[in-house]
Design a protein around this nucleic acid. Sequence first.
DNA 1: CGGCTAGTACGACTTGCATCGTACTACGGA
DNA 2: TCCGTAGTACGATGCAAGTCGTACTAGCCG
Lengths: 119, 119
Amino acid sequence: MPTPAAAESETGLLPEPTREEIRLEKVLSALSDPLRLGIVRAYLRDGDGEERACGWFKIDRPKSTRTHHWKVLREAGVVRQRQVGLERRNVIREDDLNARFPGLLDLVVAWEPDETDVT
Amino acid sequence: MPTPAAAESETGLLPEPTREEIRLEKVLSALSDPLRLGIVRAYLRDGDGEERACGWFKIDRPKSTRTHHWKVLREAGVVRQRQVGLERRNVIREDDLNARFPGLLDLVVAWEPDETDVT
DNA sequence: CGGCTAGTACGACTTGCATCGTACTACGGA
DNA sequence: TCCGTAGTACGATGCAAGTCGTACTAGCCG
């Protein structure tokens, strides 16, 4: 674990696409999964714009599955993630996403899980 | 071919989800494919809100693949489709989508294909 | 140090998805 | 009627994606 590209920084920042590099189809794909929709929505509603460790999100999946989902979100440019000791701390890239795709995060906030969606 | 649920109507309307039934994650998934993004974008830019036959969209794929994509769009509630003789005529459900997901279609219009995207 | 926690990489598995060709229905016109 | 067109259903294919368990790294604390 840890040691995200150590060269990357003392900030522990993980690789991510720049604002300009974020692709709509990638973001849409990342958000088309109910579990990930729920992750982003939870943050937007209760995260208060602060960094939240992976553990803060109560994701009902084994660790390995969670790791996978975080990776998808980060690579799509939805999440900014940095390593702090044991923890991976996350923020949703609200500024970037609002700049690139105005209104999209509002849709996520307004989204309501289907009864068949498990979180 | 034809005879869409004949019982459905003389209008040739194909089955589609109602406005309320449209699911965000379904729409996002449908639009996360560059080819389908391109279809919807082409309509929003040049379709003038009029019904357009499948052939109006110059989709660079064999017929069977095109059939598949149309089906995805229709079942997600993005497209309304009706059979008229030989043709399948389509409109993007702008009213419904704007009512349910304000701003989303604007993102589609503003989308720019990646150089690696083929249409 | 040992035990526990946070989280990843890896691989296996199952399912989903984009693609394609084939065979077909239906329609329209010569 | 025949031929061409518009488009579908079906099945095969290959790849992607969600899931999981396993083995592991790293950090923290008693």
